[in-house]
């Protein structure tokens, strides 16, 4: 069974088709780099996979189940553009809250473990609004990985991260890969994405114009993919 099956998905905003007949199958354990220029439909596709939006046509299955099913959402982790943390709650309160929402048996203990992993254990009782930008980003990474998701969706994960947050995120993504988790990340940062990815999909004006394994040629020449399959 595929980790993700996207079958003929269309998404309209008014009359504008943001996604057009998107078809994609992703095997468990794959790391997919979802590439494309601004407005290509990457975020729209990730939002539909995350169950934040419904497709106008077509269907999405995650490990054989509908994206909006509760059991499916428990298996998904999302790190989007926003940090998705409550400024008025402390670091430990934020993570414990999401742990409880994901039904973790010992949410507080897991929250403590994650704070340790992202280097925020020392400020566990500090309010999120008092954190620096980099600390907030690390806390957001901890939130996304908190419930050890089987499918991880990352939307521009490296954008605006500081060096330490990038290191934390890369190490956690590597850990997920080693444990056979499926990762889908949209990004403009080709070099970082291609180094982590096992597969690549290129979106252009809402359509997948190329999907396949990441090759050595892509790593050697990061512009090759756009030159070969994309618009000039």
């Amino acid at each position: 069974m595929n980790a993700l099956e996207i079958a003929d998905v269309w998404k309209y905003y008014g009359d504008f088709p943001a996604l057009r007949e998107v078809r994609l199958n992703i095997a468990p354990g794959s790391t997919l780099a979802l590439l494309g220029r601004n407005g290509a439909g990457k975020t729209t596709l990730l939002r539909i996979i995350a169950g934040l939006s419904r497709p106008s046509r077509g269907s999405i299955k995650i490990h054989g189940s509908e994206a909006r099913e509760q059991a499916t959402r428990r298996r998904i982790g999302v790190l989007g553009h926003g940090i998705a943390l409550y400024d008025e709650l402390s670091a430990i309160e934020n993570l414990t809250l999401f742990g409880r929402l994901y039904g973790l048996p010992d949410a507080r203990q897991r929250a403590d473990e994650m704070l340790e992993r992202v280097g925020l254990a020392r400020v566990r009782d500090g309010l999120a609004r008092e954190f620096s930008r980099g600390m907030r980003q690390r806390l957001a990474v901890a939130r996304a990985f908190l419930h050890d998701p089987e499918v991880l969706l990352l939307d521009e994960p490296f954008t605006a991260l500081d060096d330490r947050a990038i290191a934390v995120l890369q190490s956690m993504i590597q850990g997920m890969r080693d444990r056979g988790r499926t990762i889908i990340m949209s990004t403009h940062q080709l070099r970082e994405a291609l180094e982590l990815a096992s597969h690549v999909a290129l979106l252009q004006r809402g359509q997948i114009v190329h999907a396949g394994e990441r090759t050595q040629q892509m790593l050697d020449d990061t512009g090759w993919l756009y030159r070969t399959y994309g618009e000039n």
């Binding site: 995350a50 934040l52 509760q70 998705a84 943390l85 409550y86 929402l101």
Partner: peptide, 15 residues
């Protein structure tokens, strides 16, 4: 809406 928390709640397994 602050920090896109609504998206995190909708994406979570909370009905």
């Amino acid at each position: 809406l602050q920090n896109d928390c609504l998206d995190a709640l909708i994406a979570s397994p909370v009905s």
